[in-house]
Design a protein around this nucleic acid. Structure first.
Lengths: 354, 354
DNA sequence: ACCTATTTTTGAATCGATTCAAGTTTGGTA
DNA sequence: TACCAAACTTGAATCGATTCAAAAATAGGT
């Protein structure tokens, strides 16, 4: 393939204008059948298969593809139980609309800036569970439309989020209803300071990440309504990974003698906590109950099956994709809050006696 | 944002040439510090954040992104145990090289043609486990470099594949060594004819999909070496999904009275087979042994843990990405065959007496 | 001050397509 | 035959950046 064949070459070979060749490929109804055949014959003889997407992109301005941005490593898209489901929903909606899908890593500041600035996409879906403000800033500066998932709905951007407050309330109510009073919380990150450990009252009041703040708000509101002092219930901030969850389980068990239950802000945390409790010789739920959040695939197949707050993660992905496609069509900015449900399985049971 | 600020606008505001502004952003070492400051000041005052990737793409010709193509639905990238691992490897290597990653669906002929023709990428990684020829044709016609994963290594293209022959030999040898003689095979697809069911000898000789053909060849070679007539061992062609695997298990159990083992061409097939055998009241491995191929994540956590042929799926993804990046740099076409190993867990045991 | 080598800057052409107002052709009707 | 409306075709400008040979500027040595 010594030389690229251009649309202009086809036009010359067929002795027609470039505009006509463009119409043959893009708007065939606007061209007479004879002309269509003439142009296709010329294209075939030159080995031209259709317009080069690079030329089209510059002139038309759009590429019909969306970038999904994560602040984690790209491989997390294929590994993390929550993220996989979210992406599956996005992928399904992409295919329904014939849109392309690009994966964009924002794993550190430098990479994020470069990738968001140079990705050839029409808009972004930002996975803002953690580090959302950074992603939102960068996307806004790129000047393309974006949807911020799990960003504060009151922020004024296009947002899709689960009802995290309600999820927190349902989870805490479930444990209270089972008689639990000595409870520990294993949380998601509060902000981007890479801090892990027992959370002070001051820090708890200043959670910057919306899911963390709202789930905690739901938990605490419910404790207060049940006559429990929210400040008596320790919070351990984790990185949503096995190592910090294990450290958190150990620390909270030590801080609350006779603890009977853990509230976990994600199923990934809950699953790691169950495994660690069992490794310490504690039975779930007989000795310690564990409730998660998300209802990812692994929740039901855990031994024992995990009680959790269910959000339709795939629907979140689908709604986010529909919103970004709509934003490109000029739809007004709005927020969508998705409902959550309590799913009782076998990781929670009545509180044991002291 | 009423009007897009272009590089040319910055050049005018800073009273320098467009070439200089381009150099400031792309080759800052070639510009004097004073000039750099002057241009950046102008850019900042105009709100210009850097070159528009669309203009760059057309002139520079490259976008520094790779498209991964599947002949399945896009969501399969996030759901199928084998595919997820493969993509995780690709994603990791992408990030290491600062390259973008696009997911490209080739789910049917029309979509495949359009998507491969219009994807804004520098090259493709084709997931050719099934329907590889179609994908290879389309990618070749697009005129971009590509890597065909699990395409026949002798095809002359850039190929990355597991040593499927050897994997077949290891799996069959393992069962023979355990005393199994009444064996059934649950295979992947033979060609694109959407056919499922017991495979005739004629069809078995004409498998067009390389992984199917080579794994079967390894199985049969080993049977022959052990004095077993390969034609006495039925093959059931599945779609690598639960439904056809269950039908295959039932059909093969009926065709081979006293059958003691299944050879499954993927772990996805093997896991579905184990579940179905157990649902039929058969014990694995006491009544029927099952061996898979791939060693995906779910293999070890199956009950009982699955004996399988292990291939380093992530390494396959990494190698494929390195090859496509190298192809874009002018590296010669070549094939890479990745080694496989037998991993004995608890889904295989000695053949029971008749 | 002059010369040479190196560094910096220039700017028109190029990349390949789409766009859309104007021009041309065709078909139907009076 | 003439006129009008609809269908079809035209083609230069535009999209926004990079390129690279030539021109200009700078620095160092004699």
């Amino acid at each position: 393939m010594a030389k690229t064949v251009k649309l202009a070459d086809v036009a010359k070979a067929a002795k027609v204008s470039q505009g006509t060749v463009s119409n043959v490929f893009n708007r065939p109804d606007m061209v007479s059948p004879e002309m269509r055949e003439r142009v296709m014959a010329a294209a075939d003889s030159l080995g031209y298969r259709g317009p080069d997407p690079r030329g089209r992109l510059l002139r038309a301005g759009r590429v019909n593809a969306i970038g999904v941005v994560t602040s984690d490593y790209l491989r997390n898209f294929f590994e993390n139980g929550y993220t996989r489901r979210f992406l599956a929903g996005i992928a399904e909606e992409c295919e329904r609309h014939g849109a392309g899908l690009s994966l964009v890593s924002a794993q550190n500041d430098e990479i994020a800036d470069w990738n968001i600035r140079t990705a050839v996409v029409d808009g972004f879906i930002l996975n803002c569970v953690v580090e959302g403000s950074r992603l939102v800033d960068l996307a806004a500066r790129r000047g393309l439309p974006f949807v911020a998932v799990e960003f504060p709905p009151e922020s004024g951007f296009n947002v899709v989020a689960a009802d995290d407050d309600q999820g927190g309330r349902l989870a805490a109510s479930h444990l209270i209803g089972l008689g639990h009073r000595r409870i520990g919380i294993l949380s998601l990150e509060f902000d981007d300071s890479d801090k892990t450990g027992i959370v002070s009252e001051e820090r708890a009041a200043q959670a910057r990440y919306s899911p963390t703040r709202k789930r905690l708000h739901g938990y605490r509101e419910t404790f207060a309504g049940a006559g429990l002092d929210p400040r008596s219930i320790p919070i351990y901030e984790t990185f949503n990974d096995r190592e910090t969850v294990e450290a958190g389980v150990d620390a909270v068990l030590e801080a609350v003698p006779g603890l009977t239950a853990f509230l976990c802000m994600s199923d990934v945390i809950a699953i790691a906590a169950v495994h660690h409790l069992q490794a310490r010789g504690l039975r779930v739920p007989e000795d310690v109950s564990v409730i998660g959040f998300d209802d990812i695939d692994d929740a039901a197949s855990l031994d024992p099956p995990l009680t959790t707050i269910r959000q339709d993660i795939e629907e979140k992905g689908r709604v986010a994709m529909r919103k970004i496609l709509g934003a490109s069509e000029g739809e007004p900015v709005s927020s969508v809050i998705l409902p959550v449900d309590l799913v009782v399985r076998r990781s929670t049971g009545p509180a044991r006696e002291p």
